[in-house]
Nucleic acid binder design. Structure first.
Lengths: 225, 225
DNA sequence: CTTCGACAATCAATATCTTCATAGGTATAC
DNA sequence: GTATACCTATGAAGATATTGATTGTCGAAG
């Protein structure tokens, strides 16, 4: 799950990043309107935390832009101005939630979970492939009804595949989706290989009847052999 | 395919028997620990549906006994007690699956199919062509009882042919089946030729009495010369 | 603040796959 | 029968993927 934090105050931004990272999200940040806009154009986020007061423009304008581009990310507006007008305008522009400053980090987490759940791409509750089932809400995986313990990245990767049935995914997109934007100028995919190896072993050992195949020179594909 | 139902409640047992009979299984039943134990000792089952709470003993003990005797039947534990402990203990004792009461009959069927498949007696356990045998689950191949080492694509190709006996397959379909859908707009089949060459050599060197023939302008066919 | 342990990334050594250049086959027309 | 165009096969070279061992990182516990 990828989250973008748009917030100009560094200390608040930092603490948000730390909190959400600890909660297993892939977190990226932007300090102003311009860079936020760039990132949103370039990458795919599941949720965007949007401060309204930015040094170089209003977050509401960014929100407008977002909706115009039909971005699928859920948006939570964050604002110190506890004015009802802002809230109303934000929600009318299509924000999913509104969080007035100051807020508790626990509250932030709860709102995010709620938005993500509501926004979950196709309203699925449980993803299924072969005898493997995956619950995005609880980050749980089962093979033939028995629980399968996966580490963070392993889970993220499996989720990425299962959310895109019958899709051959290219390595760069996978890396970007699971790891985040810092992957862009990377020259090798060793870290993908390493995770892939572990995930494959666990799936196999657990008796899964699906497997992740390499597509030479491109990426991977989840198949039922 | 023989299934034993160990369940003391008559009405539930009956409906299970009817359902599974309709699905072409050979179904037998036992209402208590003693008769279940007798039946298991006397006959060979492919799958055993085991209620944990029995009037004269715990199904878990029966499971233990089963494993001690190295019985090959797949076991699905059924229990009203939805306690995690039971589930864990059952799976640790070697059950193949766990189904909490109440359950849908469709779910039961699905679990049974899954267990049977995993136990490799359902459908094919092994594909055969000439003196070549191939086990899809373990990705193993033997020629005249001698193991044959194949690389990934080589195995995939052989499997593709053996799963379609006496079938002339066209190259595009083969490529799509083995490599995936990104092959669609490809301008040459050099990669197929290369793999084919290696597979053929290995089959020949191993003394296989089958061979893959080219069908000019179309594809390939697996034949016994 | 330090230590520990779990997890993730890196590195180096193979293993595997495709591409390329080239050669050999097969069908059809003349 | 031979010429021609198109298929198919082959070996070697280069590109990509996999693996196990090693090293780094971070949060939690002491």
């Amino acid at each position: 799950m990828k989250i973008l934090i748009v917030e100009d105050e560094p200390s608040l931004r930092e603490i948000m990043v730390r909190t959400l990272t600890r909660e297993q999200y892939v977190v990226e940040q932007a300090a102003d309107y311009a860079s936020a806009s760039d990132k949103i154009a370039a990458y795919d986020y599941d949720c965007i935390l949007l401060d309204i007061m930015l040094p170089d423009g209003s977050g509401l304008r960014l929100l407008e832009e977002l909706k115009k581009r039909r971005n699928r990310a859920g948006v939570i507006i964050i604002s110190a101005r506890d004015s009802l007008d802002d809230k109303i305008e934000g929600l009318e522009l299509g924000a999913d939630d509104y969080l007035p400053k100051p807020f508790h980090l626990a509250e932030l987490s709860a709102r995010i979970r709620s938005v993500l759940r509501r926004h979950q791409r196709d309203g699925y509750e449980c993803l299924e492939a072969g005898n493997v089932r995956l619950w995005p809400d609880s980050r749980r995986v089962e093979v033939d009804g028995r629980p399968l313990e996966l580490l963070r990245k392993e889970y993220d990767i499996l989720h990425y595949f299962m959310a895109r049935p019958n899709h051959t995914v290219d390595k760069a997109a996978l890396a970007e989706g699971v790891w985040g934007d810092h992957i862009d100028q990377v020259d090798n995919f060793d870290f993908v290989y390493a995770q892939m190896k572990n995930l494959r072993r666990k799936l196999h050992d657990a008796g899964a009847d699906i497997e992740i195949r390499a597509v030479y020179g491109f990426g991977y594909k989840l198949v039922r052999p």
